[in-house]
Simulated assay, not measured.
Amino acid sequence: MSEKWDERNIPDQHGRVAIVTGANTGLGFETARMLAERGARVVLAVRDVEKGKQAAARIHGDVGVQALDLASLDSIRAAAADLRALHPRIDLLINNAGVMYPPKRTTADGFELQFGTNHLGHFALTGLLLDRLLDVPGSRVVTVSSVGHRIRAAIHFDDLQWERSYSRVGAYGQSKLANLMFTYELQRRLARHGATVAVAAHPGVSNTELLRNSPAAFRLPITWLAPLITQNATMGALPTLRAATGPDVRGGQYYGPSGFQEVRGHPTLVRSSRDSHDRAVQQRLWTVSEELTGVTFPV
């Protein structure tokens, strides 16, 4: 397969059910759009249902909308119950939604917003839906990380919620590192079951609403240099789509743009940081995540 992988390479998706979080704008919308146009039944799992309906109306295909606030465990449990009732089988769970560099805030359950939304929210949702994927041939859990998993990134077990001091960049890096560690630990557990695999992806630097909370020192250069160092949401969604649909994909892989420093380009297999492969930290993070969310996995 050519390295210039694009939406034309997405296999036929008829008969498949895909749940995409954060799918009303940006990367999530483009991911959902392309899956629906290839025949999948796609559910936009979004915080704002009205915006979700507006997004669904712009997509040609079989599209539904599900209320989901990843910053609330009650909302996650309610959404999972709805999705389980409607879909006895799920082929793709795409953990795409995220927040980046907000001022210090907490979720409804008291977690730091980025760690709580980007990691714990998706951890809980995956655990609550996973049995709907386990016996489905070709099913995948795709979690979207970031090049930010390398920037000031560590799992701060002594202060996971950044209560002593807050760094919006450090907290984002922790959440995106957690996304990868979750993927790798989940894949080890899934490997004993056969059908489902866990894969990660990142969009490079995409010009989306996610950048709106970036510090000015970061945001202004992005604005000036956008044509050179960013790519649009359609290109940014391609690594996720390749991870979700590529016939050559294997569990535990990580996809991102092929260009310089993985900032932009067509999707290809990439490597994550050395820290992301620390099994002891992965396993400790898993245990802590179960304790914080109250969600355990059927694997």
Rank of each mutant, 00 (worst) to 15 (best):
G252I: 10
A18C: 13
A97K: 06
I59E: 07
A45W: 05
A226E: 12
A85I: 05
V199R: 09
I10A: 02
H193P: 00
I151D: 11
T208P: 07
S272N: 11
V46T: 13
A171R: 03
M1S: 14
R84G: 05
F29Y: 15
L186F: 08
T106Y: 08
L113V: 12
L125K: 03
H156R: 15
S75K: 11
R77Y: 01
R242M: 15
H149D: 01
S2V: 11
E37A: 09
S165M: 01
R47W: 08
S145M: 00
T183N: 14
F218M: 15
E37C: 08
V147S: 13
L285C: 09
T287D: 13
G259Y: 08
P247K: 12
N207S: 12
P267V: 04
L130H: 05
P11I: 07
A200E: 00
N179F: 00
I94K: 00
P239D: 09
L225M: 14
E112S: 05
K176D: 01
W224M: 14
H14V: 06
G170P: 07
S276C: 11
V99D: 04
I94L: 14
L160Q: 07
G252Y: 08
R58F: 03
D74Q: 12
D82K: 14
D135V: 07
T25D: 12
E37Y: 04
V263H: 09
Y172F: 10
V99W: 06
R279E: 13
V65I: 12
L269T: 13
T31E: 09
G22N: 09
A55C: 11
H277N: 08
Y101S: 12
V270D: 00
N9A: 15
A200M: 03
Q231E: 12
V141A: 08
A45G: 12
G61S: 10
E290W: 01
H119E: 02
F297T: 05
S258W: 06
A226T: 09
E7D: 11
G28F: 10
R16Y: 07
E209K: 14
P203Q: 04
L186T: 03
K4P: 04
I19G: 06
E7Q: 12
